[in-house]
């Protein structure tokens, strides 16, 4: 048992500041536990969003000592407790209150990605056959828990506020999940270039670093999508080759 000081962001909209709370911590605790203890003992109206407390729902995203993380998966033992631990809301989205941000924009951005469209069932029983290795490629992206930490850390959104022009890494992962789905026949490549702003990504890989699900966002999702865009729009030879290939 030890007393640890937390600096939590308190406030609404544009008005806010850090407030210090000291609470007792014990072995194995995560940041969300401490925040809950503070809520119960000292600040019952402290706004914090959470659900599963097991790293599966992606609700409790925040910036802990400046690093975008899930509060429920950040053990206190991984932090320097000699100094106050700062917890503040994500920066890429408008503040609702305290640690809670308005992430509604992400839901709108997702709506713009064309939905899954399967090819016709081709097995005799009216379903499909797929090989495990083909399935695994898209499964990596389907691990996404929509915590939006990758959106938070992406400088295009965080610093340049290009929310109107760029759907961000999380939604590119979504697009990749559909594009690489073995059954999908939709074409999202023109949208990726023209509507979703994939060109804004300049591969700094910050998103990959913060992903709590360890999805290789840049290398496995964004770069292959960028390559498809290049193939489709900028490389006549490849385009020709693809036309012939698809006719086989």
């Amino acid at each position: 048992m030890a007393q640890v000081t937390f600096k939590l962001w308190r406030g609404e909209g544009n008005n806010g500041s850090f407030k210090e709370y000291t609470t007792e911590v014990s072995e194995g605790m995560v940041v969300l536990d401490a925040v809950h203890d503070i809520q119960i003992e000292q600040a019952s109206d402290l706004g914090v969003r959470w659900n599963c407390k097991a790293g599966k729902c992606g609700s409790c995203s925040a910036e802990i000592n400046g690093m975008p993380k899930l509060m429920c998966m950040t053990r206190l033992s991984s932090l320097d407790l000699e100094k106050p631990v700062t917890v503040e809301p994500m920066k890429a989205f408008p503040l609702v209150k305290d640690l809670v941000t308005d992430v509604g924009w992400n839901y709108e951005a997702k709506m713009a990605v064309k939905p899954f469209k399967p090819r016709k069932p081709d097995a005799s029983d009216g379903t499909w056959r797929m090989q495990q290795e083909d399935v695994e490629r898209a499964q990596e992206f389907r691990k996404c828990i929509e915590c939006f930490l990758c959106q938070d850390v992406c400088h295009v959104l965080r610093d340049h506020h290009e929310h109107d022009k760029y759907i961000g890494p999380a939604m590119l992962v979504k697009a990749a999940a559909f594009e690489m789905h073995p059954l999908d026949v939709e074409n999202r490549i023109p949208d990726l270039k023209n509507e979703h702003g994939i060109g804004f990504c300049n591969i700094t890989k910050c998103c990959t670093k913060v992903c709590p699900e360890h999805i290789t966002i840049t290398d496995n999702a964004i770069i292959p999508l960028k390559e498809s865009v290049v193939d489709e729009f900028y490389d006549p030879l490849t385009k020709l080759f693809r036309i012939f290939k698809s006719k086989k």
Binding site: S44, D45, G47, D98
Partner: peptide, 13 residues
């Protein structure tokens, strides 16, 4: 539940 009505988990509890 002290505080106002905006995102007040004490009130929801």
């Amino acid at each position: 539940a002290p505080g106002n009505r905006e995102y007040n988990p004490g009130w929801h509890t």
